[in-house]
Design a protein around this nucleic acid. Structure first.
Length: 414
RNA sequence: CGGAGUGUGGCCUAGUGGUUUAGGGCGCUUGGUUUGGGACCAAGAGGUCGUGGGUUCAAAUCCCACCACUCCGACCA
């Protein structure tokens, strides 16, 4: 991508509506832009990051054997009446009326939709277990949106649903999802804690939240210093002693990036999703649901990975892998930079090529630091004297001169 | 929804009744000079001071209403 063509007007100053660090950097770097309260636009740079996160999640869902589908945002009121959540779900639904004055709502979650799909098809224990997921927009009528992408009213979510003939099978799958979630967050550069959580209006038997420790987080959790117990204060209340080992509990702020639920038979009973077992007896399907909010995850990554100059994207979620920056636009520098740009692209590496000739080195560097691409490669008269380029890792302080010939080798070794 | 705050060209802001035909910085346009950490010179474009109403000889400035946004509370991926 030529930076001269990139649809991004990177800002020197922080717009005043931004308060948390991830919001500030994402807005300044033109990853996102607020449309109105709690509703965000993803600009080309931000969209690339979002897609990277989406692909990581999709890959891990497939490894679980889950099949992807896509459900409507506009939902049938009758399903919500069946589960008795039309009025009670919190945050409430965004409700609207069609031209015939018939009520409908924008989906804040999809248990009703998925359970309807399943009840129409699944009649036998032989069809179980299986799992389905989607990556789709959710709408939540929050009292208040906060912290940029940390809490929005419309957001992209991955929701996975699993269906089982018995509790044991569900618990087995639940554990696998847990492991998949740890892998997803790790690939996004995050260390997460899995803590016991309150099930809220999703309901069910029990649930676990995946937490990223951060001061920007709204959740308060208690972590045991002795055993690996952890829980949301919302679930267990304020206390100082670990309920498992009596060890000292530590209170921390955290961002909830994922939440998994053992739903039991709450929805299958409410909506009549039953199967017959070997003996011909009918039982409600045992269900689980598992969510990850993508924009919040993106914000959490920035909360963890930044310095005073800007974002430091972990490689797997970075919008580009290499930021190629020629400085001093002499014919020789330009020619070598252009060739290198083509070479790298042919190798399938995503390169942002700062071909702008009217920008000073300082400005290019400042913008590069802000948008946080993992590798910065500078080409100048100085570096080409020794047939080299200067390589700097965003997360490191120092730079390294690397011969152009051995650049690919150097990058591959990373 | 309760509490607090903010609203001035695209962005950050100065100005809190009269010398303001609303000032500066960034950005933008044109020309020139520059080029290893957010360059310099010159010329230029861009504003219903959130909206409506009121007070006043006079309102960005005071009053009222409304709107929008941010933060704290509750809720959540």
């Amino acid at each position: 991508m030529l930076q001269s063509q990139l649809f991004a007007k990177i800002k020197k100053e922080t717009p005043k509506e931004a308060e948390v660090i991830s919001h500030k950097y994402l807005v300044r770097g033109e990853f996102i832009e607020q449309s109105f309260s709690g509703v965000y636009r993803f600009l080309p740079l931000g969209f690339r990051v979002l897609k990277k996160i989406e692909e990581i999640i999709r890959a891990e869902m497939r490894k679980l054997g889950a099949q992807e589908l896509y459900l409507p945002a506009l939902q049938n009121k009758n399903f919500w009446l069946e589960t008795n959540r039309w009025e009670t779900i919190d945050p409430p639904l965004f409700k609207l009326k069609d031209r015939h004055q018939k009520e409908t709502a924008l989906g804040s979650t999809h248990e009703e939709e998925i359970t309807d799909i399943v009840r129409k098809r699944i009649k036998s224990y032989r069809d179980l277990p299986f799992s389905l997921f989607q990556i789709q927009e959710k709408f939540r009528n929050e009292i208040r949106a906060t912290g940029g992408l940390l809490r929005t009213r419309e957001f992209l979510m991955k929701d996975l649903y699993s269906f089982h003939s018995n509790e044991k099978d569900l618990i087995n799958f639940y554990q696998k999802v847990k492991m998949a979630y740890f892998r997803i967050f790790k690939r996004c550069g995050l260390t997460t804690l899995c803590v016991e959580a309150a099930t809220g209006t999703i309901g069910g038997e029990l649930s676990h939240e995946f937490m990223v420790l951060s001061e920007a987080g709204e959740d308060r959790i208690l972590i045991c210093k002795k055993c690996n117990f952890g829980a949301n204060i919302e679930k267990i209340g304020e206390r100082t002693k670990c309920p498992k080992c009596k060890g000292q509990l530590e209170k921390r702020n955290s961002i909830e990036v994922g939440h998994i639920f053992n739903l039991g038979t709450k929805y299958s009973q409410a909506m009549g999703a039953n199967f017959v077992d070997k003996n011909g007896k009918s039982f409600p399907i045992v269900m689980g649901c598992y969510g990850i909010g993508l924009p919040r995850l993106m914000a959490a990554i920035v909360e963890i990975w930044h310095d005073e100059k800007g974002i430091i994207w972990p490689k797997e979620v970075a919008p580009f892998q290499i930021h190629l920056i020629p400085i001093e636009s002499t014919q020789k520098v330009k020619k070598i930079a252009k060739n290198l740009y083509q070479d790298l692209q042919e190798q399938g590496i995503e390169v942002l090529y700062d071909d702008r000739e009217d920008k000073t080195p300082g400005e290019k560097f400042a913008e590069a630091d802000l948008i946080g691409i993992p590798y910065r490669i500078v080409i100048s008269e100085r570096t080409i004297k020794s047939n080299s380029v200067e390589v700097k890792e965003r997360k490191e302080k120092g730079t390294k001169l690397v011969k152009i010939k051995s650049l690919s080798q150097f990058l591959n070794s990373k």
